[in-house]
Amino acid sequence: MMEATNAELYRLVLTDAPYVIGAYAILWIAFVVYLSMVLARMMRLEKEVDLLESAVSKRSGE
């Protein structure tokens, strides 16, 4: 049996809060990090494709 205060009830509910906020934060941080990595790789590949394809077209023009 607990001390009879309204704050005690709220305290019980709020013990769950870090898990709820943590779960949502981890979810979004993971998505952002994963997509940032994909985008960074794509930008690098895009530059590589441009360089290589221009080299190929130069060679075929020679």
């Binding site: 997509l35 985008l39 590949l45 494709v49 060679r59």
Partner: peptide, 20 residues
């Protein structure tokens, strides 16, 4: 879709490398 776009870019890199 983003990962598939990345894969297609990777394929283009490989094709261009082979051509060179």
């Amino acid at each position: 879709t983003a990962r598939m776009t990345e894969e297609r870019l990777r394929e283009r890199v490989e094709i261009a490398k082979e051509a060179l």
